[in-house]
Design a protein around this nucleic acid. Sequence first.
DNA 1: TTGATAGGCAAGTGTGCACTTGCCTATTGT
DNA 2: ACAATAGGCAAGTGCACACTTGCCTATCAA
Lengths: 100, 100
Amino acid sequence: MADDLFKALADPTRRTILDELAEKSGQTLFEICARLSMKHRLDISRQGVSQHLAVLEAAGLVETRREGRYKFHDLNAAPLRQITERWPTPDTPGPEEPTP
Amino acid sequence: MADDLFKALADPTRRTILDELAEKSGQTLFEICARLSMKHRLDISRQGVSQHLAVLEAAGLVETRREGRYKFHDLNAAPLRQITERWPTPDTPGPEEPTP
DNA sequence: TTGATAGGCAAGTGTGCACTTGCCTATTGT
DNA sequence: ACAATAGGCAAGTGCACACTTGCCTATCAA
């Protein structure tokens, strides 16, 4: 469960994908491929990116919706909260209520 | 840099070590070994644990202090904040001031 | 229908890394 | 001094995983 989350975050390419989805929501696979190649000089095959997206989706960090032949990808950063909840710091609130 | 952080979190045994240090601060290598074995049924060699601690220390998640022949390990969860700062959610504050 | 676009499935390869084993150094107690 | 304890270094092994290649399906435009 949390296993998938940390595994997904372990790869630098996947983290870059999260960055891209944070910047522009609802991108397709090809769009992500293009941006990785252009902006980040990452020459990775389309299938490589597809597999990364599958891992991110398994972790709950990416959600997808199909429309016709397009598949749009959206970032969901919510699962990340369980990290700071598991190991709280003096300043980070542990479980519940960030701003009452 | 952030690379080390995510790599450190990627391993389940390392996350368990963080849990243990969160529960009891200032443990020695042998103490951690014992607790992993007893509480978590993890039979891992002492050297294995030592290598894990090195990775955690490289990530800034564990800080150490030497006293005589003992080396005490302390958890430092602060680096984890850069995760939720990098991909903020509606409820998690992004950069700066958690509770002024 | 044909061709182009968007995506998926499956098998193969190479490398990073978790883990072990064996030996070595340093501090403490008797 | 010696033995016991706490830890470190270095080389070897095996497996998980990132990435590619090749082929297949589905939707859209001409």
